[in-house]
Each structure stands twice: as C-alpha cells, then as structure tokens.
Amino acid sequence: MKLAVIDLGTNTFHLIIAEQSASEIHVLYKTNQPVKLGENITANNSIIPAAFKRGITCLKEFRAELDKHDVDVIKATATSGVRSAKNGLDFVKAAKEQANIEIDIIDGDEEAQYIYEGVKWSGAIKGKSLIMDIGGGSTEFILCDENTLVWKKSYNIGAARLMQRFFKSDPINVTDQKAIISHLDEELKALKVICHEYKPKTLIGSAGAFETFAGMISPKIDISKISTTTISFPAYTELANNLIKATHAERANMKGLIPLRVDMIVMASLLTNYILNELDIKKIKLSTYDLKMGVLQSLKA
C-alpha cells in the first residue's frame, strides 16, 4: 500500500510518499517547496493573493506526483498559516477544486501530538526531554520521556510571525531583541512553570531550523540520511551568536543556510537561546522526523 503525507506549513509545503509492506514503511519520494504561505500574514491575518496562488500551484504539482506514484491513501494537514488566516477555508476549498487535494486543518494540540509521534519514531527521546518544533506560524513544545507524553502546547510564536512583527533592523539590534524576549516572557509563562517542575535535561529540535543548525555545525553529516543526532552545545552557542550578529548579506553567504531561512534563522536562534537559558538546558539533539513523519506513522494499517 502506498501512503502520502502533505504538510502545509506556514513557510514550506512538504510531500512524502511511502510504501508499507507488513509493518515496515519505506520512503519512496519526498520533496518540499518554499511556498511562504504566511508572507505578510500578520498585516491583516489573511493569506495574500500571491501566496495563495503559490500554494495552489504547489499543490497541483504535488497532485501530479501523487498520480504518478498511484498513491492509495493521502493525508494533507494544514497548520498555523491556514488555521489562523481569515481566508484559510477559501484556500482549503481551492485546493480541493483545483488540485483535488482534501486538506485537514489541524489544531495546535493535534499538531503537537503528531510532532511527538514523529520524534518518538526517530529514537531521539532519551530521558526527560523538551521537544521544540519551530514553524513559520507557530512553535510547539512537548514535554516527554521515552514512554510518556507529559504535556504539550502550541504557541503563535513561529519564526515568520516573530520576524514580521519584530525584525526591523539589520543586523537585528538590541531594541528588537529585547522586544522579542519581552514577548516570549509574556507568551511562555505556562511552559516555564511546568518545565521548572518537570526539569527536562535535553532539548530536542524537530527538523526545520535545527537541521540548519546541525548542518552548519557539521557539514559532513548527511541530514537526509539520519533520523537523529546530537548538536554540540558550545558549537550551537557560537553559531547562534554569529547568526544573530550577522547582517542579512553576511548570512546569505554562509554555507548551509538556505535562502528561505536567511532571516528566519535569527528568530529561531533567539527563540532557542531563550529556551536554553530560561530552562538551564545544556544538551541539544536533532530529530529529522517531525510532524509529517508522525502523520505517516498514523496512516500505518
């Protein structure tokens, strides 16, 4: 049986096609496109026409790939960018009419659950951990260990959302950084309370920005061929500080930094630094398995 998952993120649309035989899942094809559906979404809480068009064009291309592979089961999930937009349902309707793809808008709780299942599948969870998935529109946090999901919550503090609201200088100045930290102080009160009680020892970054961190620190690692790896804490700290201090032009010339993340990586660095500092965590891991792998896991017969 062939299974497919489409993950409609605020920045990037992902497609993964896999084949299940017995209880094994073998990935046949995967791709992603930097659709930037959430471009200027904070202006009037709406998917702008250009982004709307890019999204539908991408889904038409995904549909062609699905037909080529003769997929049996398709699950398309939309997260913060669609669920928070005034015209999100219009996008869902257009996707069905123009690309014959039915989209399930999942809430933050479902999103965090899928992320947990994906990260658990990667084998990254060892002992008390905090999973962090930095999306464009939202960021999910999951407290867990190998056997139990203890607590989960989705916050509207994704990298694109933070960037559109706070990133007004180049390189980002102290005033903008303080504004972000003040915003995180206000937004993440519940997270800090429960983490101070649970005391996670490891921060597990789910794909996205953490793949960029790992790839820039260790260029010899083939991120596409691993499910999890440890990220050196001192190396991360040095990299994050360099990214924050750099201008847009300087970051654009850094090896391992894709164009989509040239500015958003600054938001991801500030957010990650905030979590590490506030919760006194000194161990970082990457899970390349994220929401889409959790969704894929749920489709297993």
Rank of each mutant, 00 (worst) to 15 (best):
I181Y: 06
T175N: 11
M163P: 04
Q164H: 08
L184C: 08
C195N: 09
I194K: 14
I172Y: 02
E187M: 14
N156S: 14
L203M: 14
L203C: 11
G205V: 10
C195L: 10
D176R: 00
A179P: 05
K192Y: 12
Q177K: 13
E187R: 14
K152A: 14
V150Q: 12
M163C: 07
H183K: 00
Y155D: 08
K168F: 09
V193E: 15
L188R: 01
K199T: 13
I157V: 15
C195W: 02
G158T: 06
P171D: 11
A179V: 05
I194N: 13
L162K: 02
I194A: 10
T202S: 07
N156M: 14
L162M: 12
L184K: 00
G205A: 12
I172S: 05
S169G: 07
L149I: 11
L149C: 15
T148D: 15
N173Y: 03
K152Y: 10
D170T: 08
E187A: 14
T202I: 13
V174T: 15
A159H: 05
M163V: 04
K189V: 15
N173S: 07
K201F: 11
L184D: 01
A190W: 10
L149M: 15
Q164D: 10
L188C: 06
R161G: 07
L188D: 06
I157S: 00
Q164R: 05
S154T: 03
E146M: 09
P171Q: 12
E197H: 14
L203H: 12
L191Y: 07
K168V: 07
T202Y: 07
D185R: 05
K192G: 09
P200D: 04
E197M: 12
V174W: 08
I157P: 05
D145M: 07
L188E: 03
V193S: 15
P171A: 11
K153V: 10
N173I: 02
K201P: 08
V174E: 15
D170S: 02
P171R: 09
K178V: 02
Y198P: 04
A159Q: 00
K153M: 11
W151C: 08
V193F: 13
V150E: 13
V174G: 01
K192S: 10
L203Y: 11
K189N: 12
K153F: 11
E197F: 13
I180F: 03
N156Y: 13
P200E: 01
E146P: 06
S182M: 09
E197G: 10
Y198A: 04
S154F: 03
S182V: 06
Q164M: 07
D145I: 01
E186C: 10
G158S: 06
S182K: 11
N173K: 04
I204Q: 03
V193H: 14
N173V: 05
L188K: 01
M163A: 11
R165K: 15
E186R: 10
H183Q: 05
D145V: 02
N173A: 03
L149P: 03
S182G: 12
E187C: 12
P200L: 00
V150G: 04
R161I: 14
S182Y: 02
K153T: 09
R165P: 03
L191R: 06
H196S: 13
D185N: 15
Y198G: 04
R161F: 11
